[in-house]
Amino acid sequence: MIELLPLLLQGTWITIKVTLLGSLVAIACALLAALGRISPIAPLRWLAIVYIEVFRGSSLLVQLFWLYFVLPMPPFNIQLSAFAVAVIGLGLNIGAYGAEVLRGAIRAVPRGQAEACHALNLSPMTRFGRIILPQALLAAIPPGTNLLIELLKNTSLVSLITLSDLAFRARQLNQATLMTLEIFGLALLIYFVLAQLINLGMRLLERRLARGRMRGGLS
């Protein structure tokens, strides 16, 4: 069984890279789309709604295939590597879900916070950037953690556009060795461990950001 590990770990490294970069793209997309969604400028709002609904509503694998097979063709002629498609596709997809999470978190910040900003004459930019958003981001961490784990799990689909991630290597080894149970069992275990690492990391982040603050007090 030990001979399986090197290839699986190579795949794991790709999985980790796609997860990390995809998360960054997802967070950026979520932030932009959430801002657009609550913007007073109507066209920005529509743009954000279309982005969110399209990427949540059409299937992720369809999106990956679209980026991988359709984009290089006319009229687009944009050739992206499988790795770039993976990062961009996963980021856009999870970002659309993240935008809704973030919007909910922004709306959940107590009204009194905005009123206090108003009474202190803070500008709308300061109000949002320094007071509302930091509180919303903290509240968005638990649902955001679930989305990052979704993203990790979804990275397995990039094996279907030829990227040699963990799922790809597992499939490849399976065809070569027929040690079916061991290979897929190990792969599942690795994904499980990665998911727990995300969980742990986010919990540490939350604790660090929430230092000095207890939940449930008047605020």
């Binding site: 009123e115 206090a116 007071i131 903290l138 603050r213 008047l218």
Partner: peptide
């Protein structure tokens, strides 16, 4: 203005 529910910035 000072509010009934304080409205301090918790972070």
């Amino acid at each position: 203005m000072v509010f009934q529910s304080f409205n301090l910035f918790p972070h």
